[in-house]
Write a protein that binds this DNA or RNA. Sequence first.
DNA 1: AAAAGGGTAAACAGATTTGTTTACCTTACG
DNA 2: CGTAAGGTAAACAAATCTGTTTACCCTTTT
Lengths: 197, 197
Amino acid sequence: MSNEIEAVPKESIKRLQIIQAAFKLFSENGFYATGVDLIMRQAHVSKRTMYVYFPAKNDLIVAVLKFYRANYERSLSDLLARNDLSSREKIVAIFEDAARNWFANSQFHGCLAVNAMGEFAGKDPNIENACLEFKTWELDVFRELTKELPVMNPQDLAFKLLVLLEGMGGIAQVMKQPCPIDIKQMVNDLIDCQCVV
Amino acid sequence: MSNEIEAVPKESIKRLQIIQAAFKLFSENGFYATGVDLIMRQAHVSKRTMYVYFPAKNDLIVAVLKFYRANYERSLSDLLARNDLSSREKIVAIFEDAARNWFANSQFHGCLAVNAMGEFAGKDPNIENACLEFKTWELDVFRELTKELPVMNPQDLAFKLLVLLEGMGGIAQVMKQPCPIDIKQMVNDLIDCQCVV
DNA sequence: AAAAGGGTAAACAGATTTGTTTACCTTACG
DNA sequence: CGTAAGGTAAACAAATCTGTTTACCCTTTT
């Protein structure tokens, strides 16, 4: 017999089903408001199985936040990999995608990491950490892009872009309407203001 | 003497105690996670009294959101009333206050209206409405200020400022660190980019 | 002094939550 | 074929939540 410590498969189908169902429900209805029973029913999984993969609800929340980030990362990878676009064009594209997908979309529920902080700040360090890691990763994406630009301080510009993206998310979440401003122009202006050329 | 209008439930001391206690608890711990029993204990009020003023928890949440807005409005009124400051200086001051109070303050829990949307979007129209009204009011404040500026499109600029302020709140909520960028410069750049002069 | 508000304390109902366990089933595989 | 892993269904414990009611107490006013 293998005397390994019983390793829960990290890539089990069931585990993924649970995370996907939980992601949808947490996004639409919030974390506290979503009961474990509902998740388990939507995932077509028994409670016993859920208990094996996620001993506590908060463990599942952390996993969902990581899944959320991995999803975002994957959806960006194609864009970032393209070599027919300049870094500036990639940045603009990120914002235009966001504007198109978030504003005037009643199915948009804001950044999951921010929502999670609203419910768990000061209560669960693991969840706080997952949220921080998500935003840190977003910042890193911008940092990779801005360091290719002829600007005075790429780090500062990356943070400014992060703030801008965050603001779009928050506003779109509350005010559901077509995005009334020219995001492309705003981003380009922001970059131009720091250009050394 | 004081024969002012008297003891209207809207202005009751007890009512205010409840709202203030609830505001603190909702901000720190979230809405669902905060039980009515705890609110009532912190407000030094019996459950029967709470039930008189707020037949349901969601009624209290709406009242708290209105209180949150009224508070913000009052804290801005001094600044907005000053006539030794230009509109541009007032706008910059709003952002510098926000940067100082939000970043690197572990007691900052983000915009209550955004947090509320995260928990109640699609569930309670009254709460959704209160959140929307809060952001609309914030936008109006900026609109009043930008229409004094020599810019092409004051309405657009106001919305951009709103997005920027929102972004600062969201980022500060998750990444608790000293604000690493020069907010004053960023706001001025944003305004300058739309100046006609 | 008596009546009437306004408030308190506490018990209670009914539903729902997370977390735990037991007993059974299905299916892949040596 | 037969075993063992992995999953299901369902009952259950214990706590908690909102919402409701009853009985009482204090203070003000008349």
